[in-house]
Amino acid sequence: MSLAGPVLATTVAAPSALAGGVNVIAVGVLLAEFGMFRQAMLRDQVRLYAAQSALLSALAVVVAATRHLPELYALAGLSFALKVVVVPIVLHRMLRGIGVIGGDPRWPAGSYSGSARSGSTDIAGSHALGVASAVLVAIAVAAFGFFTVAALGLASPVLPATALSVSVAVILVAFVLMIVRRDVVSQAIGFLSLENGVSLTALVVAAGLPLILEIAFLFDLLVAAVVFGLLIRVHHGRAESMSTADLTSLRG
């Protein structure tokens, strides 16, 4: 009466518990990326970014604990402090400074024509594509990243290769995000999460990267986040909106 036995030979064996857990976290990072891709509200997008960064720090801790790379603990802590706490706070501050966070979430543009242009907080209408096409494009791009990197056969010394494929998918989806979303905040978040994707790659294939370099990268990211924030303010100050649809005066 047992049914566990007679299974076909083509099954995919389960990974080890560690590999499975690592893959789950990596997939979580990818899902957070997709979340940012579709997210309609500024505040939630920043929160998703923080969550994604927190997952990365958790992954760094897992690697540190299982592969005996103690300096990764420091990296995890620092990355947590910067990407989960400082950068989101900086972004929040800057957005609050121009009064786009803290009010009630506006109706998405396009659905209620009256508020389409007036809602300065609204980034929901910034999609250049419809839901289905956007998600399908993102899935197709992610699949491309998945399978091309898998075909390169880069084996990681510390983590399962699947995580590498996932990280490349994160990077590509971040690019799609920056292309498809037409508002400055989404694009900035797209860049920051792009960097998260690169960090994930680094964790998979370059876990031994010297701490001092990692710290330099992180502080660079912080500076970039501040500059992005400043330019968002400049943009909002001039355009009175978050949309980049009007940034078309320079061409040729």
Binding site: I171, F175, M178, V184, Q187, A188, F191, L194, E195, V198, T201, F217, A224, V227, F228, L231, V234, H235, R238, A239, T244, L247, S249, L250
Partner: peptide, 20 residues
């Protein structure tokens, strides 16, 4: 403002690839 935004976004995205 427009040029600076395009510049920082594209150049940073490019440099993220360079980081990769």
């Amino acid at each position: 403002a427009e040029a600076a935004w395009k510049y920082v976004l594209l150049a940073s995205a490019g440099l993220a690839l360079a980081l990769l």
